[in-house]
């Protein structure tokens, strides 16, 4: 394999791994948060406004972890700095 092929393969595999592993944690956490919020609303329907608002803000905070992974994946695939470096070095 040439250097370029190694960089390409490593970037693609790492991008897949990043989004795969990075989405597990937020998925588990969000599922737990929603389950807890649902049971909380079932227990206290009067407080559903407050619970829903807090739930949304919390979900967004949790989800941002997955979003960071997504951004890193996008950078690895589309604006990979190492890829451009090696293309320049190879004179392509």
């Amino acid at each position: 394999m040439t250097e370029l092929a190694i960089v390409a393969a490593a970037s693609i595999i790492t991008a897949g791994l990043t989004i795969a592993i990075g989405s597990i944690g937020p998925a588990l956490g969000e599922g737990r948060a929603v389950a807890q919020a649902l049971s909380a609303i079932a227990q206290q329907p009067d407080e559903s406004n407050t619970i829903t608002r807090t739930l949304f803000v919390g979900l967004a905070m949790v989800e941002s972890t997955a979003i960071y992974c997504f951004v890193v994946t996008m950078i690895l695939i589309f604006v990979n700095p190492f890829w451009n470096l090696f293309v320049e070095r190879a004179g392509g």
């Binding site: 967004a60 989800e63 941002s64 979003i67 960071y68 997504f70 951004v71 996008m74």
Partner: peptide, 16 residues
Amino acid sequence: LALAVRLFGNVMSGTI
């Protein structure tokens, strides 16, 4: 940083 990247990532992911 989190504020910036969260908004950017969410909107961009929709487009992608």
